[in-house]
Amino acid sequence: MALDDINLTIRAGETLAIIGHTGSGKSTLITHLNGLLKAQSGTVIFEGKDIWADKKELKNIRFKIGLCFQYPEYQLFEETVYKDIAFGPKNMGLDEKEIDRRVRQSLAYMDLPESYLERSPFDLSGGQKRKIALAGILAMQPDILVLDEPTAGLDPAARNNLFDLIRSYKEQSGTTVVFVSHSMEDVANLADRIVVMNKGKIAMEGAPEEVFQHADELLAIGLNVPAITKIFLGLQKNGYPFQTVYTVEDAVKILKPLIGGDTLDA
């Protein structure tokens, strides 16, 4: 069985991270969210209604729950960036003016200049293609944005850049974001809440500070905690009364007064 006994509530406006070892069912779980897969038993309830209750409505659900798969750049197919981003909105049956507005807005969210609109998506670099594909999802203006390892295969700079863009998109639009990730640093930086998957079940659930407390359990199921957390847990073990931190910024905040200087910067 791929998934078993999943009980998960996604709260409006939150950023939820799903972490888990390869094959733990993360991707299967998110493919259920917009009805691409149907659970053999159990329901997915969106806005109070079972998404499978009315099959005709299912298509509209997919516009509201925007799902961006791993390596989304491989789904690009149009001649121009503009047409590709417009694919989703066009399927929604929007008028030309609204489509145009959404295409330009999504491109702006991804911090790309409008000159890209008339270029072929296949002439762009890998990171840029990724952004175009993501813009194609944003153009549907989903209520929930679901991302499957959005930064897989990107270099560290492109990774940070993409996460910054997702964060600022979330702040501007107020969209609920659900993302799957392998990087504990990304999870600690971005998520309000973490769901830990193991062998098709939810192993842990909670705020990053709660989940990362259980470093031993995480390691046991093949996961990790952020490097900075590891350091602080080690310090605690050796008798230093620090609180546990999850981001480098927080660590700097704690350490700076102790050292008493401006030499430390995040």
Binding site: L36, K59, R62, L67, C68, L76, F77, I137, M140
Partner: peptide, 29 residues
């Protein structure tokens, strides 16, 4: 197919011409 369905692509409904056109987003990638 899943990725394009997530963007609202419809492979099932419509007449033959529409169905063939709906294949483009799959075949090109």
């Amino acid at each position: 197919m899943n990725a394009q369905k997530a963007r609202g692509a419809d492979f099932e409904s419509g007449n033959i011409v529409k169905k063939i056109k709906a294949m483009v987003p799959i075949l090109v990638p």
